[in-house]
Computed example of a mutant assay.
Amino acid sequence: MANLYLITSLFDEGIYESSFRVVEAESELEIAQHILAHPSPWQWFLDRSYPRDWRNRSFSFGSLWDCVQDPQMTPERLLELIKMTSVDGDSTAQLAIHKITVNQLSDVNTDPWSKRA
């Protein structure tokens, strides 16, 4: 059964209609496989996101666009690199994949500390 995922490319200015996509997929891994198999439709998001390892200053892969061009790149490694992206002012975007849970409007509660039914 497929799930819904929100894929965002977030700059510090916030979310705009052009900075997210909702897709149907079995898993995050399937999304990463699709990105590797068909990188061009994802280029706008990939080109603006840079994985960073703050514990290792010598870590540098370039943008995620550069990463998907590497023939050795695997979907698993791509997911790791996506999770290493972050917002850095106007210069770089955080690429993120979020599984969506659909709620009834009457059940919405935006308090992250409240208990959910």
Results as ranks from 00 to 15, higher is better:
Met1His: 03
Ala2His: 07
Ala2Gly: 01
Asn3Asp: 04
Asn3Ile: 06
Leu6Trp: 08
Leu6Ile: 13
Ile7Trp: 00
Ile7Glu: 00
Thr8Trp: 04
Ser9Cys: 15
Leu10Pro: 02
Leu10Glu: 05
Phe11Gly: 04
Glu13Asn: 11
Glu13Asp: 08
Glu13Leu: 12
Glu13Gly: 14
Gly14Glu: 01
Gly14Met: 06
Tyr16Asp: 05
Phe20Glu: 03
Phe20Ile: 09
Phe20Thr: 05
Val22Gly: 04
Ser27Leu: 06
Glu28His: 13
Glu28Gln: 15
Ile31Ser: 08
Ala37Met: 09
His38Cys: 03
Pro39Cys: 11
Pro39Tyr: 07
Ser40Gly: 11
Pro41Phe: 01
Pro41Glu: 01
Trp42Phe: 07
Gln43Cys: 10
Gln43Asp: 04
Leu46Lys: 03
Arg48Lys: 15
Ser49His: 05
Ser49Lys: 04
Pro51Cys: 07
Arg52Trp: 04
Arg52Phe: 09
Arg52Pro: 01
Asp53Leu: 08
Trp54Lys: 14
Trp54Gly: 09
Arg55Lys: 14
Phe59Pro: 01
Ser60Cys: 08
Phe61Ile: 12
Gly62Trp: 11
Ser63Cys: 06
Trp65Ile: 11
Val68Leu: 05
Gln69Glu: 02
Asp70Trp: 06
Pro71Glu: 02
Thr74Ser: 02
Pro75Asp: 01
Pro75Ala: 08
Glu76Ser: 10
Arg77Pro: 00
Leu78Asp: 00
Lys83Ser: 14
Thr85Ala: 07
Ser86Trp: 12
Ser86His: 12
Asp90Pro: 11
Ser91Thr: 15
Ser91Pro: 11
Gln94Asn: 14
Gln94Ser: 15
Ile97Tyr: 05
Ile97Asn: 04
His98Ile: 11
His98Ser: 14
His98Met: 13
Lys99Asp: 03
Thr101Glu: 04
Val102Lys: 00
Ser106Tyr: 00
Ser106His: 00
Ser106Gly: 01
Ser106Lys: 04
Ser106Asp: 00
Asp107Cys: 04
Asn109Val: 07
Pro112Gly: 09
Pro112Ala: 07
Ser114Thr: 09
Arg116Phe: 02
Arg116Pro: 10
Ala117Cys: 06
